[in-house]
């Protein structure tokens, strides 16, 4: 049974067709890469799965059960976590506050939902350490951190609630060589934990390295799907651009 299954998802923005009857399934312990040219509908699909946008038509099933992902919280509760390309960190909050934003550990009602900072710090510590994200201090506003550190916090944040499906939107776009290798390593680790991973990427090298399956979108429709080892880079580019010969490479 698939962890996440999308059936005939369509979405319009005004007169623009962003997605048209897209199907997508993610199995446990599988990395699915979602690729496509600009405007292919990748971001819209990510937003739908993460509960930011609602589809016009189509069905979303999580672990076989129909789910309505009406809000980011609903998506998180269904076990889907997304790391957005812009990381979606609040610059004025510190690492711990960002990691637990929206899923804080807090005390009883009578205390006004007092945050249990010490528990959060300890948990933050373990998770950051497991991915060897190094920070000077957990209480520095994240605006003062480097790009790699911010990416690390954003990915760790997705793991706090132990999600079934993790969606990574261009996870390596802004990273240096060693940090990129770390992130790819992390994607493998997520897969080995039995999670379903969806990676949106422009980078063909990344895709070939991590993806068990590649799904290609073009102009809002799903045009091709490849299994690991059954494609060449020119197949991917051909499907993305619609030039099936792939002469460009």
């Amino acid at each position: 049974m698939s962890l996440l299954e999308l059936t005939k998802i369509s979405k319009h923005f005004g007169g623009v067709r962003a997605l048209h009857e897209v199907d997508l399934a993610v199995d446990p312990g599988e990395v699915v890469a979602l690729i496509g040219d600009n405007g292919a509908g990748k971001s819209t699909l990510v937003k739908i799965v993460s509960g930011v946008e609602s589809p016009d038509t189509g069905e979303i099933r999580v672990r076989g059960e129909s789910a309505r992902l009406v809000s980011p919280r609903a998506a998180a509760e269904a076990g889907i976590r997304t790391v957005f390309q812009d990381l979606s960190l609040c610059d004025n909050l510190d690492a711990v506050q960002n990691l637990f934003l929206g899923q804080e550990k807090y005390g009883p009602m009578w205390s006004g939902r007092r945050i249990r900072r010490h528990v959060m710090e300890e948990h933050a510590h373990r998770i950051l350490e497991s991915l060897s994200v190094k920070l000077r201090s957990l209480s520095t506003p994240v605006v003062a951190l480097s790009g790699g550190q911010r990416q690390g916090i954003a990915i760790c944040r997705a793991l706090i609630s132990d999600p079934a499906v993790v969606i990574l939107d261009e996870p390596t776009a802004a990273l240096g060589v060693s940090q990129r290798a770390e992130v790819l390593d992390l994607i493998h680790r997520l897969r080995d934990q039995g999670r379903g991973v969806v990676v949106i990427s422009h980078d063909m090298k990344d895709v070939r390295q991590v993806a068990d399956r590649v799904v290609v979108l073009r102009l809002g429709t799903r045009v091709a799907e490849f299994r690991r080892g059954e494609y060449t880079p020119s197949d991917l580019v051909g499907a993305m651009t619609g030039a099936h010969e792939g002469d460009e490479l």
């Binding site: 993460s50 930011v52 809000s71 980011p72 919280r73 998180a76 997304t82 957005f84 812009d86 979606s88 960190l89 609040c90 610059d91 004025n92 909050l93 506050q97 934003l101 929206g102 899923q103 804080e104 807090y106 205390s111 006004g112 939902r113 007092r114 945050i115 944040r157």
Partner: peptide, 23 residues
Amino acid sequence: QTRYGIHLYAVGGDREAAQRAGV
């Protein structure tokens, strides 16, 4: 000291990020 406080600052810091985090 409370969750309310963190959410208050999060909304002021980056509304879209706060929204996506479920605030």
